[in-house]
């Protein structure tokens, strides 16, 4: 019986990828903490998980003219959302540095958790292959 790695590893590779994407997004928020009119974004995990079952297809714009074109990559998926600031600032920037920091730290821990789960899966597989 062959080992199917996709099944053996479960949801963890995908979770790791999402955490990594979220690291980028949160880093972008922190990088733009002083950029006027920048709107902080974040991944909505509920939406991402719902999108996993493939039943909810992303909404596509209708092409009503012959010269209309679809972007090669959708500008942003439904899972990427703008944050609602608790204290909006005058320059239109919605980054709240301390909160972004907390989320970044939280995300780093979750990334490590996913990494550890994935690592244990591999160790388990190794043990199974060796049969010791």
């Amino acid at each position: 019986m062959a080992i199917n790695f996709d099944n053996a590893l479960g949801i963890h590779p995908l979770a790791l990828k999402l955490r990594e994407q979220r690291t980028d997004i949160l880093a972008g928020n922190l990088a733009n903490a002083d950029t006027p009119n920048y709107k902080a974004q974040d991944l909505d995990f509920q939406t991402v998980l719902k999108g996993l079952d493939r039943s909810s297809a992303p909404i596509k714009p209708a092409l009503t003219q012959a010269n209309h074109q679809l972007p090669a990559v959708a500008p942003f998926g439904p899972e990427l959302k703008y944050r609602i600031p608790s204290q909006p600032s005058l320059d239109g920037n919605t980054v709240e540095t301390e909160r972004e920091h907390l989320r970044f730290a939280e995300n780093a821990v979750q990334y490590q958790a996913s990494l550890q789960f994935l690592g244990s899966k591999f160790i388990g597989l190794k043990t199974a292959i060796k049969g010791e």
Binding site: I25, N29, D34, P75, F76
Partner: peptide, 19 residues
């Protein structure tokens, strides 16, 4: 004058962008 890097904002699903 700071601005968000538009190019990186447009590729990769409009995700994270630098300054």
């Amino acid at each position: 004058v700071f601005a968000t890097e538009l190019q990186s904002a447009l590729d990769q699903r409009g995700a994270a962008a630098g300054v």
